[in-house]
Design a binder for these strands. Structure first.
Lengths: 205, 205
DNA sequence: TCGTTCATATACGGTGCGTATGTGAGTTGT
DNA sequence: ACAACTCACATACGCACCGTATATGAACGA
């Protein structure tokens, strides 16, 4: 009874399924980002990639399950970008600031904004309990912990500081996204973010 | 032809309508807070106050219109509470901190959390463009402006600082609300909020 | 070759929204 | 005081959408 042993044998069919799964996720990212979760029709979505709702409900629990998959994917991508940015920064402190700014800029992407910041929390609940365990928050917290150990930052509660910083960046992003002149507002937002973050410093720069 | 001139004459009927409108809003606050906007059925909601959907669509544009009314009402109440808290504080700076803490605590209320922080932004879009012109943000900004004029706070962009502070408080609130031990987490959140806010000070305390 | 499994399509029921239409109470004009 | 009208609400309808139950057809194993 070739349950899972075959591997390559059933690989072709399995690959076909994974392929369609990926196609559905890609379509969902586009549909959720442009129309919003509630307004996105699963009929249209599946048809747009040449399938029907049957395929959807075979690969995912339900509409919410598809959103979970999308959120998980985007979360991973964001975390990867943040990690790269932090490692590029010359100092840990500049890394923290750069993370915050990058977060703000990322949230200008309609996909991230709509799915991760608006519909995601409303439909799936508190982001801190999401599948990837909120990779973005983890990264911020890791940076803050290092900064405390290095004596640069006051011994604050790491999770609290990380969450509030992320929250500040988030609302900044929503503000920038809705602005008439994003460039200018982005500068203001980044400035304010640095001011607030400097409150964590042991001694002012 | 008495179009609107009568006033008191049609007052009785108009009052009846306003009464039902208020009943619907009250029911909506409860339903939206407990079930969420999407899951709240307008049939059940109207029936719960002895009406039908006919009354709803006579008083409001649509389901979203009802949410607008609810949001407007809650926004006003929050603003009123914040105003009272700020006026009670001995100094402006303490007022700003107290506002932030009060905001966090208010967001523990499921009604505020679910409607104003989760479903509201997802369904109605960016809170900064809401009807009451975002009374809470206005209050924070007013306080910051006074603090800058008093020389206590650095000359930062008022709107930027206000938005980021609100955002920090918001995410703090969501964190506290989802915590197993709200009391303890609330303390951590408030601490972190003060640390961040102190970044705005011209000179450290 | 035949049966089994798996990925997907098709068919169905239920729910909920928005709208078009009906209705009775109250108001206006004469 | 009676007829015409308005208004607040109920009723009835169509439509879209989700989730599930069932059917199908291709690949794989024996």
């Amino acid at each position: 009874m070739g349950k899972d042993g075959a591997g390559m044998a059933k690989g072709k069919r399995a690959a076909g399924m994974a392929e369609n799964r990926a196609k559905l996720i890609r379509a969902a990212r586009a549909a959720f980002a442009t129309q919003g979760y509630a307004a996105a029709s699963m009929d249209e979505l599946t048809a747009s990639v040449g399938l029907t709702r049957g395929a959807l409900y075979h690969s995912f629990e339900d509409k919410k399950g598809l959103l979970w998959a999308v959120v998980e994917q985007i979360d991973g991508e964001m975390a990867e970008r943040l990690r790269a940015i932090r490692e590029q920064a010359p100092t840990l402190w500049q890394g923290l600031l750069a993370e915050g700014c990058a977060y703000i800029e990322m949230a200008l992407d309609p996909e991230i904004q709509r799915i991760m910041l608006l519909d995601g929390p409303a439909v799936l609940g508190d982001p801190s309990k999401w599948p990837g365990e909120n990779a973005c928050l983890d990264i911020t917290m890791r940076t803050i912990r290092s900064l405390i150990e290095a004596g640069v930052v006051k011994p604050v509660d790491v999770e609290a500081a990380g969450r509030l910083l992320n929250g500040a960046a988030l609302s900044a992003a929503l503000w920038v996204a809705a602005a008439d002149d994003p460039k200018e507002v982005l500068n203001k937002a980044v400035d304010a973010f640095r001011q607030l973050a400097s409150g964590l410093l042991r001694q002012p720069v």
